[in-house]
Write a protein that binds this DNA or RNA. Sequence first.
DNA 1: GGTGCGTGCAAGTGGACACTTGCACGCAGC
DNA 2: GCTGCGTGCAAGTGTCCACTTGCACGCACC
Lengths: 211, 211
Amino acid sequence: MDTRETILDAAARVFSQHGFRGSTTRRIAEAASVNEVTVFRYFGSKAALLQEAVKGINASSAGNSLPKDPVDPPVELTRWCESLVEHLTLRQSVIRKCMSELEERPELAARATDAPKRATSELCAYFRRLKARGQTSGDFDAPAAAAMLIGAIFHDAMGRRMMPEIFPRPARNAPRRYADLILRAIGVGQKPGAAAKPPSARRPNPSTAVK
Amino acid sequence: MDTRETILDAAARVFSQHGFRGSTTRRIAEAASVNEVTVFRYFGSKAALLQEAVKGINASSAGNSLPKDPVDPPVELTRWCESLVEHLTLRQSVIRKCMSELEERPELAARATDAPKRATSELCAYFRRLKARGQTSGDFDAPAAAAMLIGAIFHDAMGRRMMPEIFPRPARNAPRRYADLILRAIGVGQKPGAAAKPPSARRPNPSTAVK
DNA sequence: GGTGCGTGCAAGTGGACACTTGCACGCAGC
DNA sequence: GCTGCGTGCAAGTGTCCACTTGCACGCACC
């Protein structure tokens, strides 16, 4: 209904498909079912429009957060990873475009680094809490572990569609696998029934698996 | 000297800075110190030129490979990670551009997924060798561990320049940190003096660290 | 019923782009 | 000395792009 929002929305969609140079004002106007001139009347220039549209995307946060008092790390961490994977997977196109534009147009995607920074910092704090309570082996490097788990999740979200065969399958189990691995790496004992051993490390679809 | 190679080289450079749409034939010709017309005489079209140029980049492989007979996993794996990080870091701009173009121009970067596939598969095989020799805890998920380590390395190579504060520092120690974590995750005991405990988990530069 | 405001539409401007054509020059080999 | 090849250069074509202008229409509010 609101013309301005309609245009912003369309611009975000077009940008995530075509990047900055591919987002012509014609395409955006068409996607918004609005006259091209109207776009200029509202935003003045393509650059200003896209900047605002992309800012809007990057502002949306990942939601789910880790508990202040860890009680069941495997479960809590798996949930958190799941929600992060989902969040990143849904936004993979925009993220890819932002990563590619960042060097050429830093002002466009300035806020794009906020989300990963926040996520890493939150995860790191969680690991430190575990350490402080003596629930870990004590001698691990929390920032490295946080970077590693975030990396696994990021990589999965960005790459799975293009090369599904290099990731643990089915996709729905991947977050649990990553969470389990990182917890073992930092020496957190697994609850007996919860996550110790994946029910089947050999999955029923070996023909396409990594050899 | 060879005009054709000169142009290909320039095209690769320009593409990695500006992406497909930003790689105008004028810019490429200028970067190659060649007349724009010459570009067309050699390659017929911008698309054909860029396809060949990008293929050339993706063909270059990561070099360093993991030993058939593991003798010192922490050291071997750290070396391998170091070489992979270096390889990816040097190519980060092209990789970012390819990731961003992949959906719109799949033919352009078709071979871009080869390198990660090969690396993951090699790493996975190495983990399986360790498992077969009983050097691991035995119940871990090799593909997940491989995906995770590759993810950490990929993430580091792609993100460190834009947000250095979320990665383990100094950069030169990161590969060892990741390797140590993944080895602990899969239950490989650390050699006493080699890598058990990073000499200082707290680094002397706390002001900019993740909080 | 008149005044704005939001919007559409037609037309156009200047520039960039991919790509073409035609010609001139210089150098290597016969 | 002539030929052919590789290259540069000047010019131009048609398309697309960002962005502008001017006008007309319709709806809301006074």
